[in-house]
Nucleic acid binder design. Structure first.
Length: 405
RNA sequence: GCCGAGGUGGCAGAAUGGUUAAUGCGACGGACUGCAGAUCCGUUUCCUGGGGGUUCGAUUCCCUCCCUCGGCUCCA
């Protein structure tokens, strides 16, 4: 039995595999660091943290890479409003992001490269794309036009405006380059915009090339698992995949995993609309470990409707559950229970996670276990079993990232 | 249009192919009460969107249709 996850490209569950003798190559798209991370980010990185923990518990080594996007228009705009340079704002938001991830018990990736440190590598990718003959200039932008591909063999190519134009014949709209699935690989620009010298003049790279360059450098392509939130499917992951198909004739990843959104008031949480609860705010209103518990209570394949009251209930529930575990393992408690039930719990949780990362089932299982313990007046671990029970709980914490004691 | 997630009693919401389809809220009846509330006890015969298929057996797996919600140039 090995970890199975839903693959977006094929629409079916697929088993995670690595090349023989190699660690599992996990590439996760990190945030654009222009504003505080919100609960939606927490969910995404938490879920890939569980992917990693589950693979490791299953005996695999994992090499985990997450990029930090620090070249982006919004970063410049906000920095200008705050009277900072884009670079100092990016560094400061990156530090906050790392602090939030640490608080949630998310293991740090093995590599966390920044786009701005990867410009020479990105330029090399752009030059290789240019050699395909599919790059053209449009004003200050150099665009890549992917070849047409048979339907069903790739991510959707957006086509949103074209489709809307068909749906609403009164308001026909022009079909843009993006609608045709084209994307910018280099933009000529000067300071105060971030800019670097390149064969196309001073300027900055398009978004998607960084991930190709980083994945290639740290992991080799194709990677084994690639993912992020659903919003990255188009255009970002589509574009990365087009680059890999053009340059290597192979997809970017063997398996693409995308999480459903965190919603608030029925709408997607997003930095750009301000419809969000920051991780920092959520932790202030509850606790970091409670937030982890709350988010794990739903499978990654279903949306989460953020609800402050539900969240606070989950925080309280988790605190009482920790009390139950603590009392059960207390020194000198002198109960009659063995360590076998908790070992069975750990095995059950392992089965839940390895079958498409069903953290919701794992949460239900842990909750039921704690209820049974709490309802048993002699529910304390026997003196000679304490060490075994403690190490089983430590194993459970390692697998789930939950701090139970 | 494309992608995705849903559709289970009056409402919310469980159920990893196997008793009588959890549980909570509400409603109703009773106890208690001068009356009401709170609390406790009990009742709630009625529910798996439609149609096919696989199976001894389907809420669960497959196909199809309908409906609701979200997303689709920035994004986790």
């Amino acid at each position: 039995m090995s970890l199975r996850l839903n693959d977006t490209l094929s629409g079916r569950p697929k088993t995670v595999r690595s090349a023989p003798g190699r660690p599992v190559a996990l590439y996760v798209c990190g945030p654009t660091v222009y504003a505080a991370a919100h609960v939606g980010h927490a969910r995404t990185y938490l879920e890939f943290d569980l992917v990693r923990r589950t693979l490791e518990a299953d005996g695999h080594r994992v090499r985990h890479v997450m990029n930090i996007t620090d070249i982006e228009d919004k970063l410049e705009l906000r920095a200008r409003d705050l009277g900072m340079t884009w670079r100092s704002l990016a560094r400061s938001e990156e530090r906050s992001f790392v602090r939030d991830m640490d608080a949630l018990g998310i293991l740090r990736p093995n590599f966390q490269p920044r786009a701005s440190d990867f410009v020479p590598e990105i330029i090399r990718v752009a030059r290789r794309l240019e050699r395909t003959g599919r790059v053209y200039r449009q004003g200050d932008d150099w665009m890549y036009r992917p070849p047409a591909r048979p339907p069903g063999r790739n991510f959707p190519t957006g086509a949103s405006l074209a489709a809307h134009a068909v749906l609403e014949p009164d308001h026909p709209l022009p079909v843009s380059a993006a609608d045709r699935g084209e994307f910018m690989i280099w933009r000529r620009q000067e300071a105060p915009h971030p800019s670097w010298p390149s064969p196309w003049g001073r300027g900055g790279p398009g978004w998607h090339l960084e991930c190709y360059a980083m994945a290639q450098k740290y992991l080799g392509l194709p990677v084994d698992v690639h993912g992020g939130g659903r919003d990255l499917i188009f255009p970002h992951h589509y574009a990365e995949n087009e680059i890999a198909l053009a340059l290597d004739r192979r997809p970017f990843s063997r398996l693409f995993v995308h999480l459903e959104f965190v919603l608030q008031n029925g709408r997607k949480m997003a930095k750009s609309t301000g419809n969000l609860v920051s991780i920092e705010q959520a932790i202030r209103d509850g606790s970091a470990r409670g937030l982890r518990w709350y988010l794990m209570a739903r499978p990654y394949t279903e949306p989460v409707d953020w609800d402050g009251a539900d969240y606070r209930r989950a925080v309280e529930e988790f605190e009482s559950l920790r009390g139950t575990f603590g009392g059960w393992l207390a020194a000198g408690a002198g109960g009659r229970l063995g360590s076998r039930p908790v070992r069975a719990l750990v095995e059950g949780v392992g089965r839940d996670l390895i079958a498409n990362l069903r953290s919701d089932r794992a949460v239900a299982r842990i909750r039921d276990f704690a209820h049974r313990l709490a309802g048993d007046p002699s529910g304390r671990v026997a003196r000679g079993e304490r060490g075994a029970a403690r190490s089983a709980v430590a194993d459970l914490e390692r697998r789930t990232g939950l701090s139970l004691l």
